[in-house]
């Protein structure tokens, strides 16, 4: 085990080495979760649609994604689709987006269905179409209700982005293992990268809490 002094010293001094990886992790996370929110929204709407075909498409997608490991999905995108020459960044981002999308679809489905039926009826009774009432009345409320589990899913996505190290994307975790192997000081660098993830998650949790407070003005 490294001494506490050595750990702190390396943590402070290694900042320039980690900076690129940190930035890459943040980018992969934000890009993938953003895409995942759109995927999730569409599949949630598919799932609650009247159309049996759309229901099935959503069910199959969710079953396949939830039923297979994320690392397999990322490898399929990177190694399996080499003929398309997908860059590592996008292989990781799309893999993570499709993965998180399935979970986010369930989050949205739950939050949409949790909105009181009377809200849709009130919108329809005013002459709104189903689509308009969904867009103006149901979804804004459902988004608000989905925010805590979405924040949770974002944190999972952030930590799962470390799996991109296995397709040699030089993100945070990859930097830590590379540095550890180079200096034969693995434990120090693993502890450092753990601190990075922890701080990222804490900062993000704080942001989500602030957002929730602002949006709950009408509750």
């Amino acid at each position: 085990m490294p001494t506490f002094g050595h750990f702190i010293e390396t943590l402070l001094n290694s900042y320039p080495v980690f900076f690129e990886g940190l930035w890459l992790t943040i980018r992969v996370t934000f890009v993938s979760v953003l895409i995942a929110v759109f995927i999730g929204l569409f599949f949630a709407l598919f799932k609650i649609s009247q159309s049996k075909i759309l229901n099935w498409i959503a069910n199959i997608y969710i079953a396949v994604i939830r039923g297979t490991p994320l690392i397999v999905q990322i490898f399929i995108f990177y190694f399996g689709l080499t003929e398309f020459n997908i860059p590592k960044f996008w292989a990781a981002s799309i893999g993570l987006a499709l993965h998180n999308g399935a979970y986010i679809a369930e989050i949205f489905r739950g939050s949409i269905q949790s909105i009181d039926k009377g809200q849709m009826e009130a919108g329809r009774s005013l002459g709104m179409s189903h689509t308009l009432a969904m867009r103006r009345i149901i979804l804004p409320q459902a988004f608000r209700r989905a925010l805590p589990p979405l924040g949770n899913q974002f944190i999972i996505g952030l930590k799962d982005s470390s799996l991109a190290a296995f397709i040699a994307l030089p993100e945070l975790f990859s930097v830590a293992t590379t540095q550890g192997a180079r200096t034969f000081d693995e434990m120090t660098y693993l502890l450092i990268v753990a601190v990075y993830y922890l701080v990222l998650v804490l900062i993000f949790t704080l942001l989500v809490n602030l957002l929730e407070k602002r949006l709950s003005a009408s509750d």
């Binding site: 009181d116 009826e121 009130a122 009774s125 409320q141």
Partner: peptide, 17 residues
């Protein structure tokens, strides 16, 4: 429905507006 308005038992106001 634009010609036939409706008022509900539980109001069904839009809470986010």
């Amino acid at each position: 429905r634009q010609r036939v308005g409706m008022v509900f038992q539980h109001f069904n106001l839009f809470p986010h507006k």
